[in-house]
Design a protein around this nucleic acid. Sequence first.
DNA 1: CGCCATCTTGACACGTATCAACAGGCGTGG
DNA 2: CCACGCCTGTTGATACGTGTCAAGATGGCG
Lengths: 245, 245
Amino acid sequence: MEERLDIHNSNIPKICRSCEVRHRGICGALSATELLEISKHTRQIKHEAGVELVSDGEPITSYATIMQGVIKLSKILEDGRQQVVGLQFAPDFIGRLFSQKNNLCAETASDVQVCRVPKKILENLIADNSELEHKLLEQTLKELDEAREWMVTLGRKTALEKVACFLYLIATHFDPAYFDEEKKQEKDVVFDLPLTRADIADFLGLTVETVSRQFTKLRTEKIIEITTRRHILIPDLNILKKCCG
Amino acid sequence: MEERLDIHNSNIPKICRSCEVRHRGICGALSATELLEISKHTRQIKHEAGVELVSDGEPITSYATIMQGVIKLSKILEDGRQQVVGLQFAPDFIGRLFSQKNNLCAETASDVQVCRVPKKILENLIADNSELEHKLLEQTLKELDEAREWMVTLGRKTALEKVACFLYLIATHFDPAYFDEEKKQEKDVVFDLPLTRADIADFLGLTVETVSRQFTKLRTEKIIEITTRRHILIPDLNILKKCCG
DNA sequence: CGCCATCTTGACACGTATCAACAGGCGTGG
DNA sequence: CCACGCCTGTTGATACGTGTCAAGATGGCG
């Protein structure tokens, strides 16, 4: 693989230069030339919370990278029961590769900014660039790990443990500070929940009422503080972690 | 990609010629030359049911392809709660790619035959052969789809629906006849369960007692017949499917 | 034949779902 | 500016499904 040429910023397309996740997402596998080529076809789009980006069963026309925000992936049974099967954060890749149609539904959970690329364009690029395919394999493996980890939570944990797991998940994924340094100690963790209670319930395989009760229980036990409904403060992440079972 | 040369069987390593899953598994991406090279390092091994092939937390030294049988992937919490997070059939690939250690436990559910290859050997081959990496990406995507499908079952289905889903899964994966033709009609489906009731319970996030009760319920409703404990007959797969929720 | 693991069945307990009422926040419109 | 309705979230009473504990039944195997 040749030199990435990132030092010469002039070689990087203007639209990509302002992208904060360019190196961490799949575009990190692209050379300046490839970036230039692909950037002719990409569109950066902002969506507000609650927008359905892809629908279950619909044909796939494009893929995307999350630049900012949280996207929830869910499946719905005919009778209306819903299960959230994944949460994706920047700089995750969105879309079922190499498939004609979606087998799940993707909805913005918060305000979101994505960078869309047409299906064929990306697939052609993958065929030519094995580093890109490798990066996509790595992300897919990571998602599989996460899905299996969550299966344990869904199948074997109590309602309280599920809610604690969820808060722990959000706390460690949402605050950028907790990515780099493993020293996630000392100071309070504060964040806004990107999901409604209903979404959380669908993620945990519970009802809203049960989720609400577990929030209350965690609050009365001083493990979390709830300022407004969505705003959460966690005094000690390790104590919360112990609740995860 | 050059001609595969499969017509000249003499070019295929002896050990691979008798392998029934060679074309369907990852080896289908290998040329005769590559097969010859890799076959110097592979070992075909038979294991009986109940053997732990890889342990959670242990270093990975090799990958494998399932030639025959069923392998269950599971995770265990400190307090002993267990969740089966996947079932793998021939010709699935076994092992967490590109990771130093396992994050789950793999155990033979039935008698199993696998073809092992040292970690480094396969990883070098992947680096040189993008078709191989593509095939592994496809399998990983398939596993991710299955994991997410199962999350719906774990999170949102009743005990009866879970057991019906499980039986449907086994029925459609175990009988080779139901792979090729989508016309899975007319005749009875018969098979031996590759898992104990305890394994099934761990797969479904239930207890053995509940699993047993749902089996009884399905039997009294004539949806399944249980000859011996493990031997199952399904008169009409579509009726069973309707029980899956 | 008898032991042992596996599976089934029953009685009861407990956790979560369900149904219902209510509180708080927020935008709309008078 | 306040009244109103709506949406989200909380809390309570009760119902129901699944877990737990215990006892038996079944089948494999020495």
